[in-house]
Structures are given as C-alpha cells and as structure tokens.
C-alpha cells in the first residue's frame, strides 16, 4: 500500500516518530543503518565514511566533491529501491528531497521545539546551554547548505510536505496517530500512475548511480523504461560518449531504450579553441 517519508529538524525525534508510526500501522521501518550497510557492502565502501555524506558538506567531507556526489547517488539508489517495497516508513536518508510527485507517498515534516533540541545536544556532547546554542545555529546553517548543494532545495519550506506537525503542542503519540489517520485517506492509495512514477524515479537513480563515476555531470531522466541522458560534451566526442553511455546503461535491468542528448560544452570548446 502507501509509504511514508518523515523529515525532522531533530534526527532523534524524527527517527522515534518514524519507528513508532511503523509499529502503529504495522508498516516496515526502513532503518537507515540497514540501507547504508547494504550500500557499503555492495559498493565496497567504509560505512562510517558513507554515513558522513548525509551530514557533511563536500568541502569538509575529506574526499573530492565528485566522490561525495557519487556516494550520495548510491544512497539515493538504495533508498528508492527499498521504497519500491510496500508500506515503508522512511527517515534519515534525505528521501524527502528526491522523492517527488509520487502520490502514494505521504511526506511529513516534524518540527520540534528549539529548547528540546538544545537539551538533547547539550546532554549528548556534555556542553553548556550557551555553547549548545551556538553549535546548533552552525549546524542549522550547515544543514541548509547541504540541502542546497545536494538537491538545490530548501527543506524547511512547508509547501514541500503534505503534512507538517509541530511537536510544540502535539505529543509524539498524537503525531503518530495523526500520520496514521492521514495515510488512510484514499488519495494516498497507490495506483498504476503513482507506482509508475516511483518506478521511473527508482530506475533513474539506478542509471545515475551506474554512470556517475564516468559521467559525473550527466543528468538522467527515466520515463516508462526509456532513459534520457543529457551530457555536456564537445562535438567531436559525441559518438564516443554515446557509445560509452549506451554500453553502460543498456545492460541495466528495466531499461528498454537509451537516448543520449548533448549540451554543448561551451567552456571547454572555448578553452580548446585558444590552444
């Protein structure tokens, strides 16, 4: 049936609500740890390092931003793959930023009180309230930057969600009940169209993950098993690139047809013409 994506300004609270909602509804809680482990195993990466992708900016990631983008694409692929299963509750994988237009997925944002977040932070790191406040401001700024750099989006914009619950007045338990009530609305029932939308997204992420190493700048769209890859390239490299991409993508499960479009690489063209 339907699935739920929960985002929150407090990771701990978000995870708790997600977990409780899953239990309440009898859905599956999609543990980020499991997803990350699966990615780490599949791609042969260090799991702790991989985890850092989700809360570190490429500038302080320790590897190139190219690698950062690659790993992020791997996480995206795995998350969307899991969302294909029914009745999932997803949290902590930034899914609210890349799962778009799927009508049977309910997107919820949980807002917690600043006081509570400060307390959690202060007790976690064993620091004074003042210092915690400063750190929290910095973290918020960093988080905002992260969303912009990863998906060019502002996650605090309430219009991105179907439901925004503030835990200032509503308790966690009530929030869970509310989510459970809303997901029962008929409009969140999956249908041929919404399943297709999700399939397209999932295929897109799989294709992107498989070509991102060789073509980091490529943008991928999937529609009905047809893949469109847009790459920046020079005219003389077109043939070679098309063949390479078709080779890479053609073998992917679920791909019927590949189309490669080119955007003229004006900068490189100019640079080479001066040689």
């Amino acid at each position: 049936m339907s699935s739920i994506i929960i985002a929150s300004d407090s990771p701990e609270t978000g995870r708790r609500i997600a977990d409780e909602t899953a239990k309440f509804l009898g859905y599956t809680y999609m543990d980020p740890e499991d997803v990350l482990s699966a990615v780490a195993t599949k791609r042969n990466l260090d799991k702790d390092k991989l985890k850092k992708v989700l809360d570190t900016l490429p500038s302080s990631f320790g590897r190139t931003s190219r690698v950062w983008r690659q790993w992020l694409a791997f996480i995206q692929e795995a998350t969307l793959g899991r969302l294909m299963e029914d009745q999932m509750v997803c949290h902590g994988l930034a899914a609210h930023l890349y799962v778009m237009g799927v009508s049977h997925i309910l997107k919820v944002r949980i807002i917690t009180s600043e006081m509570e977040r400060l307390q959690i932070l202060a007790s976690q790191r064993d620091i004074s309230a003042d210092k915690a406040k400063k750190i929290m401001k910095r973290m918020e700024k960093q988080r905002h930057q992260w969303c912009l750099q990863a998906f060019q989006m502002d996650e605090t914009d309430p219009s991105r969600y179907d439901l925004v619950i503030s835990l200032n007045q509503i308790t966690a338990k009530e929030a869970v009940k509310t989510i459970a009530g809303v997901i029962k609305y008929k409009k969140f029932k999956p249908m041929t169209y919404s399943i297709k939308c999700l399939e397209d997204l999932e295929l897109e992420s799989r294709v992107r993950a498989s070509i991102i190493k060789d073509h980091p700048e490529a943008s991928v769209t999937a529609r009905d098993k047809t893949i469109t890859v847009k790459v920046k390239t020079l005219k003389r490299e077109r043939k070679k690139k098309t063949a390479a991409i078709k080779e890479l993508v053609g073998g992917i499960d679920g791909v019927d047809y590949v189309e490669v479009h080119f955007i003229n690489d004006i900068v490189r063209q100019a640079a080479e013409s001066f040689r």
Binding site: S103, M191, T192, Y193, S194, D224
Partner: peptide
C-alpha cells in the same frame, strides 16, 4: 497526469488512475 489530479481522483473513489500513454496490457 499530475500528482494533485491523481490524488483528487483517488479521494473521489476512483479504482485506479493511469497516465497516457499506456499500453493495452497496462
């Protein structure tokens, strides 16, 4: 087909919602 339209149709009690173009088998 758009998400809002799809949700509206489902809420109104549609059994399913298919986007054109579709295949006969769909």
């Amino acid at each position: 087909a758009m998400m809002a339209l799809a949700r509206e149709a489902m809420e109104k009690g549609a059994f399913d919602f298919i986007a054109k173009p579709f295949k006969p088998d769909d």
